[in-house]
Design a protein around this nucleic acid. Structure first.
Lengths: 109, 109
DNA sequence: TTAACATATGAAGAGTTGTTCATACGGGAA
DNA sequence: TTCCCGTATGAACAACTCTTCATATGTTAA
């Protein structure tokens, strides 16, 4: 059982979490992650579907993969990306759920 | 009931979520938020407790407040900050829980 | 009023980052 | 082999951000 107000993370844990959040904290990158969160998507499909350059999507995917957010699978000429594991999906789904709630976060106030 | 793989956010919602994550995606700022997540803390107490400059903490708190992550209450000379609402606490606690799980996110792979 | 304390703010610089362009790599088809 | 398609990579630049320093604002006490 975990007491609610026990939020002490070590400096390293805090830094790691901050890194994760920073990587997700870009609109292009976040849309890429969401675009392949529950289904595999090729680089080209992501680029076309999001209206982004193929080069840009590839650059972002490299960082996302290096951070462990996304994993790749090659099939012929194409490379398919999706969430790296169930943790990533869970975290993102939770975040989305919170954002979609009434009086969501990130208000202009 | 929400189907699991329905993660379509509008462009605005995606941008808003990315903004929130970007603001949280800095180690200093994240530590400040965690430092006053469940209890009110004065600026000076946060600075001292985290080993950060008072000026830096104040700068970060301004951004955190502008983003709706934190709220302020003045009492005499001091200003006490804490999480803006239950949403923020919930999101952060969820994130921490996920990070603390075995084989957590943000691996070096 | 003056003085001391707590916080906020502005300017400035070093470092980082997102994007674009051009090009290279790699795989499949002919 | 050559050609085309899909993806990755490197360079370069503008834009942004974190931090520090100095100073201003606001509050309480004397």
């Amino acid at each position: 059982m975990l007491k609610k107000n026990d939020v002490r993370l070590t400096a390293d844990e805090t830094a790691a979490l901050a890194d994760l959040l920073r990587v997700l904290g870009d609109a292009s990158r976040l849309s890429i992650v969401l675009g392949c969160l529950d289904d595999e998507q090729s680089v080209g499909a992501l680029a076309a579907g999001l209206g982004l350059t193929q080069s840009l999507v590839s650059h972002h995917l490299r960082l996302l993969r290096a951070t462990g957010i996304v994993k790749a699978r090659r099939q012929g000429k194409q490379v398919f990306y999706t969430a790296a594991d169930v943790h990533v999906r869970s975290v993102l789904h939770d975040l989305i759920a919170h954002v979609l709630e009434p009086k969501g976060l990130g208000g202009t106030a």
